[in-house]
Simulated assay, not measured.
Amino acid sequence: MTDGPPLIVTRPEPGNAATVRRAMAMGLDARAIPLFTAHPIDWRPPAPGDFAALLLTSAFAPRLAGPAIADLASLPAYAVGAATARAAEDAGLTVAMTGSSGAQRLLDDMTSENIRDILWLCGRERSEFDPRGAVIAALPCYAVDPVPLPAEWDALIAAPAILLAHSARAAQRISALVGNARAHLSLVAISAAVAAAAGDGWARLAVSEQPDDAAMLAQARALWHKGAK
């Protein structure tokens, strides 16, 4: 399959390498082009008794929170996507629910169970969503910062290619960087909100059916078949 358009994986490490490995195992010509790097920031856990649940919308939160996350182990964790749930469990948390359709849907499920006081362990920059009447305390424990573009970027986007956007910030940066080249580029977004952040004008724009790598790569493979014809 590697005679088709390349697949540009833009997510930060360590996820980038994992996605590239999965894509190459599928026969895709995957290129590791991380546009951001993630790192921990100082934070202090609040009293867990003030909350009914812990919301995790990215695997970076449990991965980068450090040992202080153990102070929140008594809270049931609600995680967006299987990768975030695995990272939460690796950090010693108990996952009560794994959402498969993005943060808003997971929050809707939480409020339908009358969970109203929620601690959101998150990044310094984050997307907003409707709290549906819940009280959500956002507590940043990590940051994701842009990195300089590699030398091969211009050549990669000069011809048809498929890009992966794992977050709204990634979609916005990709959109700004490619400019009018999007007319011959395809994009796979991890959710409808991320697709909206990418804007219009793409040769093809696909939305992952679930917020995980397997579903995104399935969409990428479908786009590859279309682009290779």
Rank of each mutant, 00 (worst) to 15 (best):
M1D: 12
G15N: 14
N16L: 06
A17V: 09
T19R: 11
T19E: 15
M26I: 01
A32H: 12
I33Q: 13
L35R: 09
L35G: 09
H39C: 01
I41P: 02
D42Y: 12
D42I: 14
P45A: 14
P46L: 11
P48T: 12
S58Y: 11
F60N: 13
F60C: 03
A61G: 01
P62T: 03
P67R: 03
A68G: 10
D71N: 05
D71L: 03
S74V: 15
L75S: 08
L75F: 07
A83D: 15
A85F: 15
R86Q: 12
A88S: 06
A88G: 11
D90L: 11
M97S: 07
T98Q: 15
G99A: 04
G99R: 02
G102M: 13
G102S: 08
D108I: 05
D109P: 00
S112W: 02
S112K: 10
E113Q: 08
I118C: 05
W120M: 01
L121I: 04
C122T: 15
R126D: 03
R132F: 04
L139F: 08
C141N: 03
Y142I: 05
A143K: 01
D145T: 15
P146Q: 03
V147G: 00
L149A: 03
D154N: 15
L156N: 02
I157N: 13
I157S: 09
A159P: 01
A161F: 08
A161P: 07
L163G: 00
L164M: 00
A165T: 00
A165W: 01
R169K: 09
Q172C: 05
A176I: 00
L177D: 06
V178C: 07
G179P: 06
N180R: 09
S186I: 02
S186L: 05
L187R: 04
V188Y: 02
A196L: 06
G199T: 02
G201Y: 13
W202V: 01
A203C: 09
R204T: 07
Q210P: 01
D212K: 07
L217Q: 02
R221C: 05
L223N: 08
L223Y: 10
